[in-house]
Design a protein around this nucleic acid. Structure first.
Lengths: 184, 184
DNA sequence: GGCTCCATGTAAGTTGTTACATGATTCA
DNA sequence: TGAATCATGTAACAACTTACATGGAGCC
């Protein structure tokens, strides 16, 4: 049920088409919530049936028409009710951890390599997030309330990436065969 | 496809029934991968059909029979192939962040309260993880390779909880209305 | 008498993924 | 000439959740 609510929240900013939403989910929101365009279109149909959004077709020349959705007062109320529900801590679903549970000498090199690869990937992501942070949220205390919410999303992304990076480094330390030429 | 692999990995330790697996997924493994018993039974049936596990019925007096599953050589090979596939960084799916995207004065108190609640929940989890760590993994460098894998799972849990805790504290700081009687 | 544990499952529904489909426009 | 962008969708499948079902054993 949460993707539909994520869509509603995104529509609070401004009316958008499914295409717009999909692009946005690929960027900012997508750091912590992924959705493909197919799923978004399906949810929009459902939301329209529920009367939580209302759609308007915008004709275009030489392009498929855009169908732009806006949140309705009914949708607003539904959203407010949802906000009142308690949240569950998310679970991590980290495949690499499962793989490490199968650790044995034969696949140690493989898993070390994969951990190194992930380390690089997370470094890149972190750098990207930090750049966004500098560009858009340099002084969080001076932001509007709405934008503080956005800031906190990005901030969570940074903290999680940092934690993951540290984990990767520790894992490599722990699993790397000690090299005698390096010690002492 | 990852739950079936998580089950295979768990069966590496020893043959287990669906019931055993469900209990284990509620404990150690469950810190980063949840599964209900229904899902586990379904996956076991699938795995049996694929020939990746083989089952043996253990009759019991005055109790339902246990069906104990063990990994087969074929399952071993499938697992080794899966280990070779690259892993994706998991995505967070944190509902609270979506809710904060809908931040406005009217629901600020609500979201502050929820953040406080989550702060407590994560503190408790962290304490629990740290206790397990002390009990079972006091000296990680001296563990067997297999147990180092388990250690790293728990370690990830701790790092994520710490990051989340810090985030909660920062969020409260940022969103709490400044109380004039506290400043200066 | 009611609760939890043991132990397995079916059925229905929701959510999300992958594959497939269309078709003009713009850029290299 | 080929790829990417714009823009919407259907169909099949995989993964996961929720509800329901059974029934004895042991505990308080």
């Amino acid at each position: 049920m949460a993707l539909s609510h994520a869509i509603l929240v995104s529509l609070l900013d401004r009316p958008q088409s499914g295409y717009d939403l999909a692009k946005r989910f690929d960027q900012t929101v997508g750091y912590f919530w992924k959705a493909r365009h197919q799923q978004i279109y399906l949810e929009l149909h459902k939301l329209a049936k529920l009367g939580w959004v209302h759609s308007e077709t915008v004709p275009q020349r030489a392009r498929p028409n855009r169908i732009v959705y806006a949140i309705t007062p009914h949708g607003q109320r539904a959203l407010d009710e949802w906000l009142r529900l308690p949240t569950e801590p998310p679970n991590i679903k980290e495949e690499l951890l499962i793989k490490l549970f199968a650790l044995k000498p034969a696949n140690l090199p493989l898993l070390l390599e994969e951990t190194r690869r992930r380390l690089c990937a997370h470094r890149q992501r972190l750098a990207q997030y930090q750049q966004l942070m500098q560009q858009h949220y340099a002084q969080p205390a001076q932001l509007s309330l709405r934008r503080r919410g956005h800031y906190l999303g990005l901030r969570m992304g940074i903290l999680i990436e940092q934690a993951t990076l540290q984990w990767c480094e520790e894992a490599l330390q722990l699993l790397m065969p000690a090299d005698p030429s390096q010690s002492a």
